[in-house]
Simulated scan of single mutants.
Amino acid sequence: MTSATPTLTHHTEHNKELVLERTFAAPPELVFAAFTQPEHLRQWWGPRGWTLTHCTVDLRPGGRWHYCMKCVDPAQGDFYGMESWGLGIYQEIEAPGRLVYTDYFSDAEGTINEELPTTQSILTFEEVDGQTRVVSRSVYATPEALKTVMDMGMLQGITETWDRLAEYLPGQ
Rank of each mutant, 00 (worst) to 15 (best):
L99W: 05
N15V: 09
E109H: 14
M1L: 15
G110N: 12
Q156L: 14
T9G: 08
S136P: 12
G153D: 10
L20Y: 14
M150I: 15
R48G: 07
F79Y: 11
L146D: 01
T51G: 08
W44E: 08
P28Q: 06
A145F: 10
E13M: 12
Q156P: 04
P96D: 11
E127S: 14
F32R: 00
T2W: 14
E115T: 12
P170M: 00
T148R: 05
R133K: 12
G62T: 10
T53K: 05
A166F: 04
D107L: 09
Y67R: 09
G62S: 14
E94S: 12
T148M: 10
F32C: 04
T118A: 06
R42L: 12
H14R: 15
L87I: 08
E127N: 11
T124W: 04
E160C: 01
W85H: 03
L18V: 01
A25S: 14
G81W: 03
L30S: 09
Y140A: 00
L20P: 07
V57P: 00
Y80N: 05
L146A: 03
D107H: 10
T132H: 03
L165S: 01
D78K: 14
P28M: 01
D78M: 14
E83I: 06
L123Q: 07
T23P: 03
R98W: 06
W50A: 00
Y80C: 02
E160A: 02
I89W: 07
D78G: 11
R22M: 08
Y101I: 04
R42G: 02
Q37A: 15
L116Q: 07
T2N: 15
T118E: 07
T36P: 11
T159D: 06
P96R: 13
G62Y: 10
H40K: 05
L8S: 04
Q37G: 13
W65L: 13
P38Y: 09
D58T: 12
G157N: 02
G62R: 11
T118R: 06
T124V: 13
T124N: 12
T53L: 02
L99I: 09
E92R: 09
L20D: 10
T132D: 02
V135F: 03
P74R: 06
A4Q: 07
Q37R: 15
S84T: 09
L116K: 03
